[in-house]
Simulated assay, not measured.
Amino acid sequence: MASDSSSSSKRKLIFSMLTFLNDEMNSDLVDSDAKESLEVATQCLENVYSVSLTNPEDRRHLFTPTSIQSIFEAYLVQHDKPTSPEDKAEAEKLKNEGNELMKVESYSEAVAKYTSAIEHDPRNAVYYSNRAAAHSKMGNHSQAIDDCEMALRIDDKYSKAHGRMGLAYTEMKEYAKAIEAYQKALEFDPSNESYKNNLKVAQDLAAKAASAPPSSGATLGGMDLGSLMGGAAGGGLGNILSNPEFMNMATKFMQNPQIMNAFSSAMQQNPGGSGSSGGTGDGEPPNMNAFLQMGQRLAEQIEREDPEQVARLREQFGGMRPPNPEDESEGGSA
């Protein structure tokens, strides 16, 4: 039994490492050569440990909600040497530079500044919270949640971290968690109108989701792709396909060989889900679950890589998005 437990923990660790490498490959901060190296590293780990990010069974049994980077940063917070006055001063300078970048919507550069600030002073909750705000602006909601969790490990009464966690959970359509986060934020900042409004939005969306029929689950910037495509009979699909921004974005991503490989793989899987080529060789239809999962990953990658264009499309097609908290970054410490 101990051996089985150790093996399971090791596979969860590898899955978390693969998730981290995948996030790095999709990051704007990594150049094309580095991305190729990361892809090779990913393939090696998958082959050695028989673990795959695209395997539904692995995703179900090996996924852990806290990222490996967040776990490591939590360890550093608890065990690192005390921060020197010089490091504190440099961290504050980097944070202020990140705040200025946020004002001009240079979000990836702001993430880099906040990350450098954290490296100089990993015990300051503000830096994690500000980085969470930048991640949310880029559509990296799971990374925003990781940063909010780190901030709350340092200061569990930090209302802004609770509020930003609520925003990220709302964007991910995890409304119950969003409601809980906003209620916590209001517990420590009861007069904050932004938290009250966002809590109401999350509660309304939760009620709407509870009464709505099930959908495909694939979303693009808060727009349900199943609902979006389901309007074909009423002319909705024609409107979408005639939109030049949508078509330019679709063309761009269909030229990506990784996306086309994922599409081909999804189409070749049969309903047995074992990865066989039943979709082409034995007459069985493609695995729809695999196809929808591929669509979900495509939607997430589109919003990660071009959040501004997604925002424009959301406005054109009426996607619903809750208001942001009033402040995106903070000038002082918590």
Rank of each mutant, 00 (worst) to 15 (best):
G238M: 05
Q268G: 08
M25Y: 03
G231I: 02
N198W: 02
G139H: 02
Q269P: 04
D33C: 00
N270W: 06
G279N: 05
A91R: 15
K93V: 09
A210S: 09
E24F: 02
A262M: 09
S215W: 04
S9F: 11
E308M: 12
T280K: 12
A168F: 02
C148F: 02
R321G: 09
R321Y: 13
N324W: 15
A207L: 08
P214E: 03
Q255T: 06
L29Q: 04
H61T: 11
A334Y: 14
F188S: 08
N197V: 15
L313H: 07
V77M: 11
A212T: 04
E57L: 07
S108W: 04
A176G: 15
S191P: 10
K88D: 10
K10R: 14
L313S: 13
G163N: 01
D23M: 06
V201N: 13
I145W: 00
L220D: 05
V48E: 03
I145F: 01
E92L: 14
K157Q: 13
E36W: 00
A74V: 03
G236F: 04
Q258H: 09
V77Q: 13
G234I: 03
S106G: 06
M102R: 01
T66P: 02
L199C: 05
Q143F: 07
K95D: 12
T19P: 07
T251F: 08
K252R: 10
S264G: 07
N22S: 11
G236V: 05
M165G: 06
T251E: 11
P257L: 04
R297W: 06
N197T: 15
M249K: 08
V310K: 06
G272H: 03
K88Y: 13
Y175M: 07
Y107A: 07
Y182A: 05
L237D: 07
E97Y: 11
E57T: 11
R321P: 10
E92H: 13
D80W: 12
R297V: 05
S52A: 12
I71A: 07
N26K: 08
S37V: 02
R11I: 10
S216K: 09
Q203L: 06
M17A: 14
I118K: 04
N96E: 15
Q316M: 12
D58L: 08
R123Q: 13
Y182H: 07
A181S: 10
D31L: 00
D121C: 13
P122C: 12
P65N: 08
Q309I: 14
S277N: 14
P190N: 15
A176R: 14
E305S: 10
S129Y: 06
Q203M: 13
V310Y: 05
R314H: 11
G331E: 15
M17V: 11
N96R: 14
M1D: 13
S329I: 03
N99A: 05
S16L: 05
L101G: 00
G273Q: 00
N96A: 13
L152E: 01
L313M: 13
D224V: 04
R60T: 12
L101K: 01
Y127N: 10
V201Q: 15
P285V: 02
K93N: 15
M172C: 07
I154F: 03
L220I: 12
E36T: 07
P122H: 08
P213H: 03
E149D: 13
P82G: 06
A209Q: 15
E39G: 12
F291L: 08
A151Q: 01
G273L: 00
G163E: 00
F291D: 07
F263G: 05
A334I: 15
N239S: 10
S27C: 04
